[in-house]
Computed example of a mutant assay.
Amino acid sequence: MMELLGLKSILIIALIFIPLERLLPLHPEQKVFRRHWLNDVIYLFFNGILIKLGLLLVVGSLMIAIRVMIPEQGLPAYVQAQPIWLQAIEVILIADLGFYLAHRAFHSVPLLWKFHAIHHSIEEMDWLAAHRVHPVDQIATMTASLLPIFALGFSGSAVAIYALLYQAQSLLIHSNTRISLGPLKWLFASPQFHHWHHANERQAFDKNFAGQLSFIDVLAGTLYMPSRMPTGYGTDEPVPPLYHQQLAYPIKMQTHRASTSEAQISEKAR
């Protein structure tokens, strides 16, 4: 999201998206200071520290292991010899394939879903809500996106282009806007595409996993994008509303489940 941006960049983005959501609102009745906006501001300013440290540790450790097992030879030189524009396209495609697979896993594996449910607890979509992501969720998903890129040796410029486009698109697809990409919606993720991913409607569950390239969902058979827009978002399960509670929520739920299982086993043993 915006973990790598400074205060000045955040202010500029706010000055772009707040008026945009007022001029072209999808849900005009939604307020700028909607429910739990302050909680998402805390995510914006504090979550990035945890995510940066986690990515540095996880991706750094894995890159060291990869270089030990597979010594660097001619591949990075070949990759970096390509034009920057071609590298950027390849980086976006590879990164979003990794994103798709990790995102789908967070929906499929019950333990992982507890972390991802924090992001799906958003009930009013806007640019700020894009930052409500549990650090474990973001670290794992971004590792799946970034590790292949770094292992293949793409240039820093190509990775920077990807990062800029990813962050801009992430804000756009969460925003409370009725911006449409027209026929390009079948190729690129749009607000319509991602709002349906967050929709609290049975038909939309576990759909639209890509972060940037909607055609991945088209090819994988996980696309759901009717012409109308969803009216409700969020999860059926109750998620606590505050930042510190949401950080602890997946662990508490897992501990509670383990305690319940132990109690049931003890009861059967009597």
Rank of each mutant, 00 (worst) to 15 (best):
I70A: 12
L187W: 10
L5N: 00
F99Y: 14
Q80A: 06
T260L: 15
A199G: 03
K268P: 03
P241I: 09
A81E: 12
I173G: 11
I161L: 08
I64V: 15
F17I: 00
E90D: 09
M253C: 12
L20E: 02
D137A: 01
A151C: 07
L112R: 04
R34G: 02
V32S: 08
M69H: 12
P28Q: 04
I161N: 05
T235Q: 12
S261L: 14
P83R: 09
A210R: 04
S180C: 06
G60P: 04
H256L: 11
H195V: 02
V136C: 00
N208K: 04
L97M: 10
A158W: 00
Q167C: 06
E29T: 09
Y43L: 07
L4I: 13
Q80I: 04
G232L: 12
Q254A: 15
M63F: 07
H194N: 06
Q245R: 04
R270S: 09
I139V: 15
G156F: 01
I122V: 15
L147C: 09
T177P: 05
P19R: 05
T141Q: 09
L24W: 08
G232P: 02
I66Y: 08
H197D: 01
I118H: 04
L128D: 07
L53T: 09
R257Y: 10
L4P: 10
A102V: 07
V68S: 10
T141I: 10
L101D: 00
L184S: 07
V32A: 08
F154T: 02
S214Y: 00
Y224I: 10
L213P: 00
I173K: 14
G232Q: 14
P135L: 03
I51N: 05
I89N: 02
L15K: 07
F154V: 01
N47K: 04
S259V: 11
H194W: 02
F215P: 14
T177N: 11
V79R: 11
M253G: 09
M1T: 03
S259H: 15
V41Y: 08
R228P: 13
A204I: 03
A168D: 06
I94R: 06
P148V: 00
M2T: 11
H195G: 05
G156P: 03
L55Q: 00
S121E: 05
M229C: 05
F205W: 12
S170M: 12
F188W: 06
L57T: 12
Q264I: 14
S170C: 08
A163D: 04
L111D: 02
H107P: 01
N200D: 05
S214W: 01
Q192S: 14
M253K: 15
N176P: 12
H107S: 00
I216E: 07
V58L: 13
E267V: 06
A263E: 10
Y224G: 09
G156L: 04
H198L: 12
H195Q: 08
S175G: 09
P76S: 11
H174F: 10
I66M: 11
S175P: 09
A263G: 13
L62E: 02
P148C: 03
H256G: 13
V133R: 08
I16D: 00
E72F: 07
W196N: 01
S108H: 12
I139L: 11
R257I: 06
L147N: 13
I18N: 05
A129I: 02
T177F: 05
L242K: 12
F150C: 06
L5A: 03
S61Q: 08
L86K: 03
S190C: 00
